[in-house]
Design a protein around this nucleic acid. Structure first.
Length: 309
DNA sequence: ACACTGCCCTGCGAGC
DNA sequence: TGCTCGCAGGGCAGTG
């Protein structure tokens, strides 16, 4: 499932190759809905022809290709979408819906088993609106633990659902949210507004660590993710929690079997011993110590070392 | 403004 | 071997 690290992996590969190239043609296959445009009167397949590709950018899980025409191609891979760079003479890949022929003789192919992904031709206004709707980039240094804490304080919902909300923070999906909550020993159903400043700061540090490592490993290939050259990412072998409830895997910290929950309709993996829902902190100037959840980057710390309330 | 649910979509693995 | 069925989940619309 392409999340921020996977989209960033695709972006980096494309950024090496496609800027400066011109779109010579477009071939749509049976599922023509893969290429669309919200702009009235714009037929994307014909509008693309002759356009130069200026850059390869990313915002959250969206890949953005600004064009010389002033419009931009916005790609969302959703669950199973893939963008591939192949020779223009290659046969269609499996589940291919769209081929963008470049003047170099290469093709940018869009394939998607589940037809969830989209390639959209949009204008500046749409792009600005998208940027406005999405929350800050988790790897942007301007986002601080204090800001995240402030945002969480207005959210009574479960922390996992809130982290998946792209308006709060952009780019996180099911895999990396489970990993970050496991690392910080925060239960996915903990109400977001009960997290302390320390919790929020630790969570942000864990998210950044996990995302950076995943990017360095070219993303997580759990089922179908591939970079534009058809190569799998290597991060799946390093996941500690996500998907490990199956097969009787145990928490590497405390040896407790992982447990599968459904939170917000998403399959969720937790260690039922390390990740426990804590009571609401007592509001006001009471000098009760906030629960110390430990975790974070420290490995091998038994949960018994937690400071009980 | 926010939470929650259902929808889209189809290959795959489990179970019989 | 071959069938059925449920699972995977990001974003969005609709509802409360």
């Amino acid at each position: 499932m392409p999340e921020l690290p996977e989209v960033e992996t695709v972006r980096r590969s494309l950024a090496e190759v496609i800027p400066g190239q011109t779109i010579a043609g477009v071939t749509q296959r049976a599922f023509t809905g893969a290429l669309d445009s919200p702009l009235p009167g714009v037929e994307p397949a014909t509008s693309l022809i002759g356009a130069g590709i200026l850059r390869a950018e990313r915002r959250g899980k969206y890949l953005i290709l600004p064009l010389s025409t002033g419009l931009s191609l916005v790609v969302h891979l959703r669950m199973t979408g893939r963008l591939l760079l192949v020779s223009g003479e290659s046969a269609p890949v499996r589940f291919e819906h769209l081929a963008i022929h470049l003047n170099s003789g290469r093709d940018l192919r869009f394939a998607d088993q589940r037809k969830f992904g989209r390639v959209s031709l949009v204008d500046e206004g749409y792009l600005a609106d998208l940027g406005h709707r999405l929350g800050p980039e988790p790897l942007d240094a301007r986002l601080t633990g204090k800001m995240l804490h402030h945002r969480l304080q207005r959210r009574p919902g479960k922390i996992k659902n809130v982290l998946l909300d792209q308006h709060l923070i952009a780019g996180l999906g099911n895999i990396y949210v489970d990993e970050a909550l496991y690392r910080t020993r925060i239960h996915p159903e903990q109400p977001a507004l009960t997290l302390t400043y320390e919790d929020a700061a630790r969570l942000l540090r864990a998210v950044r660590l996990i995302l950076r490592l995943a990017i360095s490993r070219q993303g997580t290939t759990f089922s179908s993710f591939e970079n534009p050259y058809g190569e799998a990412g290597s991060n799946a072998a390093f996941l500690r929690a996500y998907g490990r409830a199956k097969g009787g895997n145990h928490c590497p910290r405390c040896g407790t079997p992982f447990k599968r929950l459904v939170v917000g309709g998403r399959g969720t993996t937790i260690c039922p011993r390390c990740q426990v829902i804590l009571d609401m902190p007592i509001p006001g100037p009471t000098i009760s110590p906030s629960p110390d959840r430990h975790g974070e980057v420290v490995e091998g710390t038994p949960p018994d070392s937690r400071t009980d309330r």
